[in-house]
Amino acid sequence: MDNLNKISVVNINKKYNGQIILEDISFDIKSGEFISILGSSGCGKTTLLKILIGIEKSDTGSILKDGEEITNKKPSERGMGLVFQNYALFPNMNVWNNVAYALKAQRLPKEEIKQRVDDVLAIVGLSEFALKKPGKMSGGQQQRVAIARTLALNPDIILFDEPMAALDADIRMSLRKEIKELQKKLNKTMIYVTHDQEEAFSMSDRIIVMNDNHIVQYDTPNNIYKHPQNDFVKKFVVNHLDEKAKAILDSTK
């Protein structure tokens, strides 16, 4: 059964200066799933993401990917990509070079680099912007460049760290859809950190609800909505959904 799991997180604990950041975190993610990690700021969700991709180390516990232990692997060797909240594009490079930079660093053949960059730019719909510098583009476009940059390395898991926090409401809505469609099209496993209930409920196959450094509930949006595990989930997650989202959830069985 374990071989179905794309990612298994076992017993992660993390303290910083004696303060607990993460406590007994364990969960599995299946291949091709869209998972949100939902929680308010300070609940440890971003630290968890950093541990998953390897920018930070946990004190205890292990991470398995496709059944293989990756706890001590370098971030670039985990086959994961990370999309940041503030895009972190390189302002001096145009869109094409932003995406190509990592491929060039791997010394791939020129032809292959061109092929891959052109492909991912087409996927995110930015082919026409290849020669633009990021500073001249809108926030939504910049975030799509960041996604393309991650896709170019062809990771099988993509992590998002609140990628829409800096965007306007209407752009968020459309980018939400785009990411979701991208996931279906490419069949990638995606892990999406957010504090926005709507976002988590509208995009995810399953949601990891975090509070006070541990997981309070891990289930489908529908089950979380209908059977909130405890008062926290009820108060801070379910009650915060807007009427439209509730109506949609109510109509599903």
């Binding site: 670039s76 990509g81 990370l82 940041f84 991650t150």
Partner: peptide, 8 residues
């Protein structure tokens, strides 16, 4: 961090 995840 970007560089680390991208292998740069």
């Amino acid at each position: 961090t970007v560089a680390d995840t991208l292998g740069i």
